[in-house]
Design a protein around this nucleic acid. Structure first.
Lengths: 109, 109
DNA sequence: ACTCTCGTATCGACAGCCGATAGGACTATC
DNA sequence: GATAGTCCTATCGGCTGTCGATACGAGAGT
């Protein structure tokens, strides 16, 4: 009933791209970074994260390679491609337009 | 033509509630009002609008009654219930929290 | 050995959007 | 008084995306 999706559609991609803009990370580290960046407002679970990563890699925005985490664990590291950086800019602008439009709409009385 | 810029999930309800906050309107008038409020940034088609209206009426946020449009057409007018007004406030606050969190996340470098 | 944590991955249920489509009713034009 | 156009409501099917539950594998701690 109060399911009220914590994540907003289209937001997850943007947050992942942004989380990777400071350098390659592996899956769970991306999840933690997203939480951190948003002050805990957004928390993405594994069931949402990995499908998104695969989708975005398929789209050519990310490239992955196996490596080792800081805990000596086998981990897949993702990094932004050029197309991914472009996508980050595009989605950032798109979000700003949406944000401005919504702010204007909510202010009208 | 216009890019896929689909509506952001959870945004449609808020916009509809806001569009009705200034008084009762019928379906297509709501659609036009949403476009107007957002400076044309959001355009909601009939295929999205009516399911949303029915869902929201089911949830008790809206009440409907048949009447006549300004063009002498049979039209169903929707108005906010008390629960709808409460929902409007709730979703507005929620949006602001999301907006702030996103702005913070996008600003980090 | 056993368990905890880390890390990746998939599945099924569920919900929402959106284009296409339909149809009734009023209006305009010829 | 036909015909076409506009207004208004409505539904369906396909598609996509979220998310909890679940699983597996491997290193670490005891």
């Amino acid at each position: 009933m109060l399911r009220k999706t914590s994540l907003v559609q289209g937001t997850l991609d943007l947050l992942i791209l942004k989380a990777l803009s400071t350098g390659p990370r592996h899956g769970l580290a991306i999840s933690q970074r997203v939480s951190q960046m948003t002050g805990g407002a957004f928390q993405v679970g594994a069931g949402s994260l990995f499908p998104a990563l695969h989708r975005m890699e398929q789209a050519g925005w990310l490239a992955s390679s196996w490596g080792e985490s800081e805990n000596n664990r086998r981990a897949k590291f993702y990094k932004l491609t050029k197309a991914g950086t472009r996508q980050l800019n595009t989605e950032t602008e798109q979000w700003e337009r949406i944000s401005i439009a919504m702010a204007g709409a909510l202010k009208t009385s």
